[in-house]
Amino acid sequence: MTEQNPNTRALAEAGVSIWLDDLSRERIATGNLAELIETRTVTGVTTNPSIFAAALKNGEAYAEQLAQLSADGADLDRAVFELTTRDVQAACDLFTPVYQASNGVDGRVSIEVDPRSARDAEKTVAEAGKLAEAVDRPNVLIKIPATEEGLPAITATLAQGLSVNVTLIFSLTRYREVLNAWLLGLEQAHAAGIDLSTLHSVASFFVSRVDTEVDRRLAESSAEGAGELTGQAGLANARLAYRIFTETLDTERWRVLEAAGARPQRPLWASTGTKDPALPDTLYVTGLVAPGTVNTMPEKTLEALADHGEVTGDTITEGYEDADRVLDAIAHAGVDYNDVVAVLEAEGVEKFVTSWNELLETVRTALEDSAAR
């Protein structure tokens, strides 16, 4: 019988759900994803346009479906939609036992709306409904970017009874807005007679990209001690997000919804692979341990955790004062926090659109190759 890795098991026992930030048909077909569930305590999967672009570019596992789509005369958008939703559907099926054992909390697979709709609430809501209908599994999460336009889409999607993964959160102010959009969605769902216990949500707070941008600016700062703040902004920002999360759960607004069966929207730590080789490769895992959270990791980070990650219990809730100090010091070093998070959000949407276009181009080539055979 296979055994769970002690380090990944320790993280799960500390209240952190481990989700893999990757998916491909090859992973599913070869049994690799099943093995990660059995040996690395993986209880969910997140995807994004970049992940699908890489999977389709490098995978032969899609050849048969591509040939069928080509024969059917499918256009690019339909082909991408059907290829990606089939992968997510298969992953949802694989995670069904986890989903059932966790009473719907875990065993979740996320699929993102077309990022080209990130600035259009109406299109985002329509896309969310199409994705949920196509996957047709209770453990799917629809990913919606936390742009200003995405906020009403989050509310509307939840109000329709669909579970949501809110993605691309960088700012503490935006996170408060996301929590409000989530609560408003639950309130509207409840008013419509939807069983709130069936609605789940996570809020994907990005970590390493904050350090990348802040550290770049610190390196250009002439302020005394600026260099000593390198590699600290991402953790500080995320820890303060968790404080906001716990404060939200200590409100009458939440207690009313909880009494009606609502589940908390868990903070999900995303972008947890370290970009700076000078930083520990498990920094954004072992440094962000607290109950009721999710950490979605690329496989490299997951394996680093399994090999040498030291889980020492809660590393968030005792660190609020220090996190405040770090962000204050960064501001005093001349780094504009509001500008940092605005730049990161804009870049995040742009990167996903670029990846989506790469995905379209990859599928276009594959369809043409199938048609030529």
Rank of each mutant, 00 (worst) to 15 (best):
E122T: 13
T312K: 11
D114T: 12
R116I: 09
Y337I: 13
T43C: 12
R255H: 14
T286W: 06
E299G: 05
I18S: 01
V140M: 10
E350K: 13
W356D: 10
P115H: 07
P138M: 10
T251L: 10
V98F: 06
L184S: 14
G150V: 09
D22G: 12
L327H: 04
F352Y: 11
S197R: 13
P97Y: 08
A366D: 05
L83M: 08
L20S: 07
P267Q: 06
H308M: 01
D369I: 12
A181H: 04
D276W: 10
V125S: 02
A371M: 02
A74F: 01
V207K: 03
G225C: 07
F81G: 02
Y284W: 05
D307G: 03
V166D: 04
M1T: 12
A74Q: 05
F206A: 04
N139C: 11
S197P: 07
G273M: 05
G234I: 06
T41E: 13
G107E: 08
A181R: 04
S222L: 12
L288Y: 04
T46W: 08
I144Q: 05
T167H: 08
T147N: 09
T230S: 12
A146G: 14
E26V: 09
A192G: 09
V80G: 02
D87A: 11
N7L: 07
L199R: 03
